[in-house]
Design a protein around this nucleic acid. Sequence first.
DNA 1: AGCAAAATATTTCAATTCAAAACTTTCTTG
DNA 2: CAAGAAAGTTTTGAATTGAAATATTTTGCT
Lengths: 163, 163
Amino acid sequence: MSNYVQTPVQGQTPEAPQDLVKQIVHQIRRLMQAGELYTKELNKKYWVTAAQLNCLIALYEHGALPASQIAKLIMVKSSTVTGIVDRLELKGLVTRVRNSPDRRVINIELTEAGRKLAENAPPPIQQRIVDGLKSLPKNDVEQIVQGLNMLTHMLEVQDLQVE
Amino acid sequence: MSNYVQTPVQGQTPEAPQDLVKQIVHQIRRLMQAGELYTKELNKKYWVTAAQLNCLIALYEHGALPASQIAKLIMVKSSTVTGIVDRLELKGLVTRVRNSPDRRVINIELTEAGRKLAENAPPPIQQRIVDGLKSLPKNDVEQIVQGLNMLTHMLEVQDLQVE
DNA sequence: AGCAAAATATTTCAATTCAAAACTTTCTTG
DNA sequence: CAAGAAAGTTTTGAATTGAAATATTTTGCT
């Protein structure tokens, strides 16, 4: 924590912290772009995108799952899962099986190749964060977590208010 | 700041804060999804997406700009700007003019309609954050900013290492 | 002058994402 | 039991995003 942390201007009105808001929005966009660039790079090197890898890992950790459950775990709508699973299926990493008594549900399970890929997984986005966090004191790590918690909690409360 | 902040487990090894990393990744995904849901909602109500609105606001604040400059301001690659400007042009909110001595550059400028829209802009994502921040003590706001700063700084340094 | 390199913008391509609508199957209710 | 609501999945359509390739123009160097 150092020179790149801009300290707020003295005498700022507490009601309209416009520049702080700008900073926050800016940072969020940077996070998103970092994620996008990372997934492209991942796909080029390992033939699997971040979304696909998240899906594989969810299946590895929880066993075979229907699309709706995967959607909840990787935080995406279920129509998005369809496309991700399509591509994983084309690569032979998962299969769709209709083995539930409820014939609406279609379970998605790892193939052998999928399981192997999930096991010695190519570095997901997490690894980069792990590496970065190693160099920070624990207090800073907790500050990041709490800041994000406040932010997401805030945005989700706002989401509800709009409905 | 309260119950939704998960306190870390006692006796955790400082070298592998796996659950903290999981929380951070989870929060980032929540931020991204909040942004996605917001832009869809915005588009439904105002016929303009968040990316398009950011582009309009950049032009309003800086005057006519070439695509490469817009790309830097709104933090996307310039091939992305092309598509955004295409759609804004279709709606008559911007025009492309080749008025530079350097005939490679194509300046994008607001039309009257675009200027009006940028002036009394429909609430961009910022507004939601402004509203949320109002209910937080200033210390918390600064914590959010600093947490994000650390995170993005970390990811961008990592980005460079990959090149 | 001439030619290679750089800069600017666009095109093409694939992946992600969500909403809305469609489809199938199950559940509920009268 | 039949009609319709609900649940699970997929399809369709539009926007965003970035990489890579392409086209045009400018610049720099010999």
